[in-house]
Amino acid sequence: MCDRAPGGEVEIVPNCFRVIQRSNWKIFLENQLDALHPSVTHQSTGRAAHEVEKEIAKRTRKGEAPLSYHMLSAFATVTIDKWDNFQTLNYPHGHCILTGYMGLRPQDPDTLAYDKVMIKAYGQKRFEEIVGVNIHHVLIYPGLSVQSPLQQLRAVRPLGVDRTLTEIWHFRLKGAPEAIYRRSLAYYNLVNSPATLVNADDLENFWKCHQGLSSDGGDWVSFARHLGRDIEKNGVVETAPNCGTSEAPMRNQMKAWARYMTAEK
């Protein structure tokens, strides 16, 4: 994230949104890179935003709603079949990465202005390296979830077996144009605030998962989606092309957790 700042540093914006989930912390982490749920869980928000986005486009002369609507309407426009195009990389100790999503290199005027500042600060070669880093979302198991292209960070703090506190921060890239900060802020306010249009349905589903798991319904949960199709290279498990909804990240996290739980002193 620091590399993405022309000044080489990020500045923490002094506001922390704190939200408690009534479910085990592992459910939250398993959800973070899950590409299967967004178009189902968040369809009400996606469709509502898409409707209003179209109305605004019709009304305004420029024919375009602000970019922030796209952050929400993508839940409706990126249908479930398209989510398989994404890819996750799964590292030892439960760490995972979701690669490009929402277009990592958009060509709008704000991004182009940012690119210019970055090239001036780093030179063309280093700039290409930095923006070429194909990470949308990274999970540092078991405590952090970071979206560096949008400068968001969620820290996960278990309060009990069925209560989890998330502390949500966002950052300003030093030296970057204000428009880049506004993009990060829009995401922070719309997706991560305590009045989020997005996470309400996630938290509701986490609660249901937790209720199900604490019942006598069954001892096993299947994380078998696309098992056997993943590709393993030097200890890193990559999902296969067109298998982005593989539950490889969940398997990877459970593997790490089982290792921690059975480790000899």
């Binding site: 009400s44 509502a48 209003v52 109305e55």
Partner: peptide, 21 residues
């Protein structure tokens, strides 16, 4: 921090039959 457009998004979301929460 909602203008009337964002208020409309929130309303439509809440009224959507698949707003699970």
């Amino acid at each position: 921090a909602e203008d009337k457009n964002l208020m409309a998004v929130r309303m439509k979301r809440v009224l959507h039959p698949d707003a699970w929460s």
